[in-house]
């Protein structure tokens, strides 16, 4: 057997899957901007993504901020550069950790839920029922989730940034003996608009990816409970990988010299 055959087959399969995902994304996005819009469904998804994800994102960023302060202090103490701790905490949180951690957490929580819900609707013919009731599934199921993901993750990340910086503040002031006023002053002093803005752009991108992969995998699930399970796993794994890849690309776009 030709050794290149399986490689070529896998590559063609990858290209076909990319094409299907791209078409799905284009059709879905087109439904986001064409009436009718479903405000009730968008609102429900916003609450699901934004409000109900707040505890898990808050906890994650709080402890990440605390660990960051602790680790950077022990590292910088070797060079007598402890005063850089507030800058490191705030820049790391706003540029990287806030968006990436929130994205990954929401991928696990919301991406999986979307894939499971839409996947179950698919295998129980509820998606077909929508079509027979003259309702486009892309418009009714996918568009509200994309809009909610795109808008709510930036808000979650802004809140997560504040909580993460507060976590660093708690450790620095109450454990490492930093002066509270100086810590806050140093935090603000070197923080630029671009640091926060790049994190928000990342968050919007990650929110879109999480919703898209959840909907795409759920929409194309087949074969009952096992198919829905596979769709859920694929949604989380593919969204997580795409978040990490796009994180690099967006960082390159904003900060590469």
């Amino acid at each position: 057997m030709n050794i290149f055959q399986p490689i070529g087959k896998a590559f063609l399969g990858f290209l076909a899957a990319t094409g299907r995902l791209s078409l799905f994304a284009i059709v879905s996005v087109s439904h986001c901007v064409r009436p009718p819009i479903y405000p009730r469904l968008i609102g429900r998804q916003m609450i699901e993504i934004g409000y109900y994800s707040l505890p898990v994102v808050g906890l994650t960023t709080l402890f990440s901020g605390m660990v960051l302060a602790l680790q950077s202090y022990t590292g910088f103490a070797r060079f007598s550069a402890e005063s850089a701790v507030p800058n490191v905490v705030v820049l790391s949180m706003t540029r990287e950790l806030g968006p990436v951690l929130a994205g990954l957490m929401v991928a696990g929580r919301i991406g999986a839920a979307m894939a499971a819900e839409i996947g179950t609707m698919r295998v129980t013919e509820q998606v077909d029922a929508l079509t027979t009731l003259s309702t486009n599934p892309h418009k009714y199921l996918v568009a509200p989730r994309l809009i909610a993901g795109l808008t709510m993750l930036p808000l979650l990340v802004l809140v997560g940034d504040i909580i993460g910086v507060f976590g660093g503040y708690l450790i620095s002031v109450y454990k490492l003996g930093f002066n509270p006023a100086i810590y806050i002053k140093n935090t603000w002093q070197y923080l630029e608009f671009l640091d926060v803005f790049s994190g928000v752009v990342k968050a919007a991108c990650f929110g879109f990816i999480v919703a898209l992969m959840g909907c795409y995998n759920g929409y194309h699930s087949r074969g009952g409970a096992q198919g829905v399970g596979a769709a859920t796993t694929n949604a989380v794994v593919s969204a997580s990988i795409m978040i990490l890849i796009s994180n690099y690309l967006i960082t390159e776009m904003f900060f590469a010299k």
């Binding site: 129980t124 013919e125 509820q126 077909d128 029922a129 079509t131 027979t132 003259s134």
Partner: peptide
């Protein structure tokens, strides 16, 4: 979608929206 407005459908498993 306009054509589908003429249709009603009873699915085998009912397919009610949960």
């Amino acid at each position: 979608e306009e054509i589908n407005r003429k249709f009603g459908m009873l699915f085998q498993g009912a397919a009610l929206f949960d």
